[in-house]
Amino acid sequence: MEAKITLSESMEDYLEAIFNLIKKNGSARVTDIANSLGIAASSVNQGLKKLNQQGLIKQQKYGPIKLTQSGVQAAEKVNCKHQILYLFLHKTLGVKPETADQDACSIEHVLSQESFEKMVDYLIKNNYIEEQSCAFKFMENEEEEKMAAKELMLASMSVGSKAEVLKIESKGRLKRKLMDMGLNRGARVEVKGKAPMGDPIEIKVRGYSLSLRQDEAAEILVKEV
């Protein structure tokens, strides 16, 4: 079950840059990110907006950028893939360090979980990495995530995923109407589709199709099943 947020390549690059900057300087600013990626500050701002929407970063107006917990996780994951790829290319295939680093940068975004795990296995077998490598933490996380279903808002669920309603956070009439329509605790929902611009969304609940806005879906807490 692969229902987590999927990030585009450039988003992963941003995340990685922020992660590295924070590690190096203790904080990340828009200009630093722009410099380290070699792109314009305005495009960085757009990228940051998207990351913010997905809850991966936090940014006070004009303040430094911070990673949220899930942001750190996502960044660590990309970073780790990079390390493993680099080691694999450099140590086992004998690729030059610069080329290996560059290639790792491009491959990290598309590397599947399976190939990644096989690479890690191979590297361990040949004693290129040790037990403390980031790979283990990352693989454990992956396991844990699979075990524990995530709580999230109905609005951020992707098409095709199923969930169980935990709580309706809206108040008053809207809440009552939602409850009348069968969207209360324990109801199973499935996201069937999204209209243009992602709004409104169509869900299947209690055997019928219901169309509701992102704003409305953002008030319904669900647990993926």
């Binding site: 409104p200 199709s209 219901l210 169309s211 509701l212 806005r213 409305e216």
Partner: peptide
Amino acid sequence: TDLLIDIP
């Protein structure tokens, strides 16, 4: 107002 329209 809220959308909440059921799709027959």
